[in-house]
Design a protein around this nucleic acid. Sequence first.
DNA 1: TGTACATCAGTGAACGCGCGTTCACTGATGTAC
DNA 2: TGTACATCAGTGAACGCGCGTTCACTGATGTAC
Lengths: 231, 231
Amino acid sequence: MTLTRRERLRAATSEEIKQIARRHMAERGAAALSLRAIARQMGMTSPALYRYFSSRDDLVTALIVDAFNSLAASQEVSYKKYRSTPFQERLLALAEDYRMWALRHPELYSLIFGTPIPDYHAPAEITRPSAQKAIAPFVRLVIEAHQAGQIDYPATYEPLSTEVKQMLEVARGQAGNEGPPEIILLTLTGWGRIHGLVSLELYNHLQPMIAEPGVLFRLDMLTWLRSIGLK
Amino acid sequence: MTLTRRERLRAATSEEIKQIARRHMAERGAAALSLRAIARQMGMTSPALYRYFSSRDDLVTALIVDAFNSLAASQEVSYKKYRSTPFQERLLALAEDYRMWALRHPELYSLIFGTPIPDYHAPAEITRPSAQKAIAPFVRLVIEAHQAGQIDYPATYEPLSTEVKQMLEVARGQAGNEGPPEIILLTLTGWGRIHGLVSLELYNHLQPMIAEPGVLFRLDMLTWLRSIGLK
DNA sequence: TGTACATCAGTGAACGCGCGTTCACTGATGTAC
DNA sequence: TGTACATCAGTGAACGCGCGTTCACTGATGTAC
């Protein structure tokens, strides 16, 4: 399991490439990622990069997987941090962590949740597992709260037809989603609610109207938690 | 007010440039917009475009304004269409129109709500008015429902501190937002809720789990409407 | 412990391609008298 | 109604720049005996 010297150097160079790629994405956007520019900054020639990634698309795929893993790790930390506190506080912590991760790593957020890069198509079989890992802690926590009997499927929700229930069955088990259809629905719409405000804030659509979008976010999360019976 | 022949031709060419630009954005992404490629497709040389737009950024700004106006027009139609029906149906119609507009014009949606184009900075004074027009019908309808006494500021919402109320005052009047702070909050978080699911759907983050995101969207909108007292 | 060989990282030149923008210009369209 | 002139759309060449990828290669590092 220990790496040889060569393997270590190789891994380090590979990391450096991705590191610089991330910096370039932060400065110029993902669509402008250029192997030549990365090589230049590393003091190498561009063909050398082909020792590490077989094409530009390959590098992008690696960056996407890393980005999902970074979000997953951040969520996982928040998931574990407050083991003994009530579910509503833990869910709020996960939501605020999602927001903070996005604000701290806008280039990574844009890479995975923003406009797709032209002419690049992510190979789903590589990308999907890490994508699922990223939302898994949030989903798992909602399920746990449900299993602990602390979630009211809110009276305000429409009753689900059998067709809708069947559709939601498909999502069962993905990203650790093990609840009844109503709770699966709750995890997905909850995620959408988090995601929507974060996306608007990150791209400056709230700021013309609102000085502190974070306050708005927190209020809406508290409202959400109350509406599902957690307060 | 009637245009001369030359002015008409000029306007037509200007429209054609934007038309082709939109097609290119749809096919290759906004970051890849190229004056040379547009000119090529029009059977012109690229310097000729400088008669119509003084730079690439100028063209992008025009496209952004058009995109906001397109969304605004679509929302306005839905706003007017159901004059005599209850508020919940009208708001649902506006939400679904927002979603459909995004799905029908993903390149325009991405242009205004997606990852910003590298090295391009939209001049806010040109862009903002049309941005506000785009969400104005939705905002106005919530305000109207409130004025008709049909919105309960829901019991589940946190009571607002005076600081938060002050922050929300700033948004008053923008995009026709004329209600009390609680209602302003409602319009913004409601928009976020719509936006989040649409964004996830458009960029294919729901589809691995959910066959018909539209059903999910509709359910969440109905839930939202109920939660604010409209049902 | 020393030598012969294989592996691998990185180079430099080249391929064929793209881009935004400036400039001096041609030729058609429109205007004033 | 006809002529002289001004305006304007569009051209073609050029500037200086960027890109991904392939290829034959050098030279250093690691491995087997």
